[in-house]
Amino acid sequence: MPTRRPHPLRVLLVPLLLSAALLGTGCEESPTGRKQIALVPDAQMTALGEQGFAELLRSLPLNDDPDVRAYVGCVAEALVDALPQPHGRWSIAVFDDPTPNAFALPGGKIGVHIGMLQVARTPDQLAAVIAHEIAHVLADHSNERLTQELAVQGGLMLVDLFAEEPGSLKHEVLRGALGIGAEYGLLLPYSRTHEREADRIGRDLMAQAGFNPRASVMLWRNMAAAGGGQPLAFLSTHPTHDTRMNELAEGMDQAVVVYRQARAAGRTPACALP
């Protein structure tokens, strides 16, 4: 049986992608000043976000309680209003799903599961959740993660391309080792970095919007109580609850100053619990 070779266009894409990654190192910074590589065009990320949000709207039931929708919308809109201008229009949906979850997608899409209201029990705590998800978008984390995954796939393609004995045990062991090394040495640590960064950016955003940033620590206390045990931090894409609370507390004094300034300037969101 003839050996299957990669498509010529894919072979060309690999060195171009890896070269672009190397050339782009240090050229971009996240809102916290962290160096990052995000190579996917913004227009494409927006299209992906819109496509994903549309699919969720088709596949998941929406909550039909007008009080719940008004409450979540009030919190989300107060946060969006605090974003740097121009921030564009954001769409907000409340899904009738009991799992405590929320997300934000490129292109200005916010989704909140109704189950999150059982954990985020106050407007300030809900603001901490939504601000955290918005922060992922502000920091271009989806783009960065997609770029990393494309780079990993490019590395695996190179292993296949230059293998002396394609399909041999040696080749498969090398390929598997590269995949595992990429997952635990690159993708998961970056995910933890993203989560920590989103915690910090989200805490500061909620303060700028007039929500009490101290609620971010209380939120994770609630999450810890609701979630029970969780994986070791090394094998998890999320920091432990204790780690998150400690790191959020580190910059809390300055966040409280920003919060008080926002309130004094008239940012006093009045979002009524349903």
Rank of each mutant, 00 (worst) to 15 (best):
M116W: 10
L9H: 03
E144I: 11
R10T: 15
G49E: 00
S142V: 05
G107T: 08
P61S: 12
A135M: 05
R200W: 10
L219M: 14
P100G: 14
A135C: 10
A21H: 10
E144K: 07
Q153M: 10
L48V: 06
A226W: 07
V257G: 07
L178G: 03
V112N: 02
L39H: 07
A20E: 14
A272D: 13
L178W: 09
Q208V: 09
A163C: 13
V11T: 02
R267V: 14
G107F: 10
H136P: 01
Q230W: 11
A104W: 07
R10N: 09
Q36D: 08
R214V: 15
W90R: 09
A151G: 01
L174P: 01
R260K: 13
R4M: 05
G107M: 07
R203F: 02
N212D: 15
E197C: 04
A38Y: 01
P166D: 06
V217W: 08
H171N: 11
C271V: 15
D81K: 14
N212I: 10
Q254H: 15
E165S: 11
V72F: 12
A182Y: 01
V14K: 04
V119R: 01
H194A: 06
A182D: 00
V258H: 05
A249V: 04
L219V: 06
R121P: 00
V159T: 08
Y190S: 08
P98D: 11
K170N: 12
G88P: 05
G227I: 04
T243K: 08
A225T: 11
A224R: 11
H141M: 01
T32Q: 11
L23D: 08
I201D: 08
H7P: 00
V258D: 11
E29G: 10
V40K: 02
P86G: 12
D96L: 10
A102C: 11
R214A: 13
I110Y: 06
G202N: 04
L205S: 02
L150Q: 10
E133K: 06
L13Y: 08
A255Y: 09
L248H: 13
L188E: 04
L105D: 04
G155V: 14
Q118P: 01
G229W: 03
K170Q: 14
A127T: 03
G108Q: 05
A272G: 14
R69K: 15
P41T: 06
E133G: 07
L174T: 15
L156S: 07
R89Q: 12
A38W: 01
A198Y: 08
S59Q: 09
G108H: 01
A233V: 12
L158M: 11
A54I: 09
R196F: 09
M245E: 05
I37A: 08
A151W: 00
A264F: 11
R4D: 03
A182R: 00
L48K: 03
L161G: 04
F211I: 07
A264T: 13
G210N: 06
L169E: 14
R5F: 07
R58D: 14
A272M: 13
L105A: 08
R221Q: 12
L150W: 13
A76V: 13
H136G: 01
L56S: 13
S216P: 02
T32I: 10
V94N: 07
T25C: 15
A127C: 04
L232I: 02
V68N: 05
E164V: 11
L117C: 12
E197I: 04
Q118C: 01
P100Y: 14
A255H: 06
H113A: 08
A20D: 09
K35N: 10
R69Y: 06
V173E: 03
T32S: 09
I110F: 10
